[in-house]
Design a protein around this nucleic acid. Sequence first.
DNA 1: ATAGGGTTAG
Length: 415
Amino acid sequence: MSSFLALRRVRYFSSATTAAAATINSTTSTDAAESAITISKAKSKLRTEYDPDKALEIYATVSEHYTSPLSSRYAQDLTVKRLAKARRYKDIEKLIESHKNDPKVKQEPYLTTLIRSYGLAGMFNHALNTYNQMDELGTPRTAVSFNGLLSACNYSKLFGKVPQLFVEMSEKYNLRPNQFSYGILIKSYCEIGSPELGIEKMREMEEKGIEVTAVVFTTILHSLYKRGKVEEAEKIWDEMVRKGCELDVGVYNVRIMHVHNDKPESVKKLITEMTDAGIKPDTISYNYLMNCYCMNDMMAEAKKVYEGLEGNCCRPNAATFRTFIAHLCNKEMFEYGYKVFKKSVEVNKIPDFGTLKPLVEGLVKKLNKKDAKGLIRTLRKKFPQKILKAWDQVEVELGLISIESARNDIKAPRT
DNA sequence: ATAGGGTTAG
């Protein structure tokens, strides 16, 4: 029985891969506005599509409407990540290799997306092969693809390999590393556990007259805080300010990250500071503030932050819903938790099983079976069968459904 | 049109 299912799955999948591959080469003359709509719809769907087969089908519609590397990159990234999670490496290869038949591979940005994708899938050797294949494919080389290769290496978590590639490839192909190349290199040193070497490379940038932006400072700052080197971090921050580096949300969020386990006043202070400097806090900043209030039992304040998000031109993201619902459950605020859950459904950012289970249990405990059932019913509509199995059991355990009807469901799933 | 910041997990 299970092998039959497995077989069916493979066959179904192969046809989806082929479909995705085939559309890439078809010449379509859809007009740009229409393409943009199609792509944006596909992205929204992909975000919540965890079934790799379905993801591929959706991705096929994106390939069909290709306009620029950037516009389809997000979709390609998501598809590849889903496949990688399912360990479908052969299928990733099939998909990406098929793109090499497209005339656009002679364009460096296009080819670079392929290299990056292999990296995201953790298939660094494929990324490297693709990079070495460029002459054969007739794609010109600049720092763009070089940086793509270095990024692929970081994505594959081969941080130690980046410094070596940096030297080797820049010499072999006579390329001059730019500010992005250095940014990637410094990231790799920080990940290896040596922000000090990262700082050394930053000095090298200065000597060579390559602009050191907030991104590089942020990488180093983050690494220092993460390793508890607070004094060194403060020094880097001071240097950054002193040198007149343009500050942005990213750096501030790293600083907020560092203080958010403290009292809310510390977070508030930084938010005021950045706002005064004309930098708008984003969803990440507010998530920290909200979390911080929750950890300090200030739920009314946390609610205010959550409800004020849109007024601050921020949209709640997946992390907002997940962490807030978890805290609300801890505080037994299940009714409000259900409200937040409904909002997450509305915007297609539903938290995972582990987050929602305590919410259902809490609702039942408070004798609110109606909402508990409503929650599960909603999930049934949204998620693939595999994930839902866990919910069948929860339903029975909590007495939301009788064992008999659970059995019936196996034959005839509810709609 | 290539680098950083949260959270994500099996």
